[in-house]
Nucleic acid binder design. Structure first.
Length: 173
DNA sequence: AGCAAGATCGGT
DNA sequence: CCGATCTTGCTG
């Protein structure tokens, strides 16, 4: 079943690891597809010097200041869309960047696979008929590592272990 | 008003 | 390792 808004209206450090192993669904004219979430990163508050919220509220990041459950989509490097999920309470800017799905690694590729663009800015995962996340009753082990691509943030932010990765399942053979 | 840098990716 | 490609938000 679809995750309710209350799932997202909690601290990003609680929500982010729980997103690992969940299925994100996308419905379009091409049909319905579901993808397993394998890697995410958390961005937390205006004090987090790696976050777009570090300069306060701007036109681009305004949705981060809403309460959780909305999509924060932005364009970067002239060619890539990034798909983020807003978490937490209003006026506490937080978001989770989706960095990997079972089919692909990398946030730019994730947006391309999900066919998400600017039109999804502010979309509500709790009510949208074209994108949502579903719960399932499986709890997966998750490991944490530092976030990528944020060396400008300085310490301690660039070292915070706020990237969450699904532990690869043991192989046979 | 101008500009440097960017939560990246793919080819060399 | 570097170029692509363009939006953003800071600086002046």
């Amino acid at each position: 079943m679809r995750l309710p808004r209350s799932f997202y209206e909690r601290d990003v450090l609680d929500v982010a690891p729980e997103l690992i192993g969940k299925m994100i669904f996308r419905k379009s004219a091409d049909g319905l597809s579901g993808y397993l979430i394998t890697e995410v990163e958390a961005y937390r508050g205006t004090e987090d010097q790696a976050s777009h919220a570090r300069f306060g509220k701007t036109k681009r990041n305004a949705v981060m200041f809403e309460s959780g459950g909305l999509l924060y989509v932005y364009f970067i490097y002239g060619m890539y869309w990034m798909v983020n999920i807003v978490t937490g309470r209003a006026e506490q800017p937080q978001a989770v960047l989706i960095r990997g799905l079972k089919e692909t690694d990398g946030p730019g590729r994730v947006a391309r696979l999900l066919a998400v663009d600017r039109s999804f800015y502010g979309e509500s995962l709790a009510v949208s008929d074209r994108i949502w996340i579903e719960d399932h009753q499986v709890v997966l082990p998750v490991i944490q590592k530092p976030r990528f691509g944020i060396s400008y943030a300085g310490e301690p932010w660039k070292s915070m272990p706020w990237r969450y990765i699904m532990v690869p399942l043991p192989r046979n053979s």
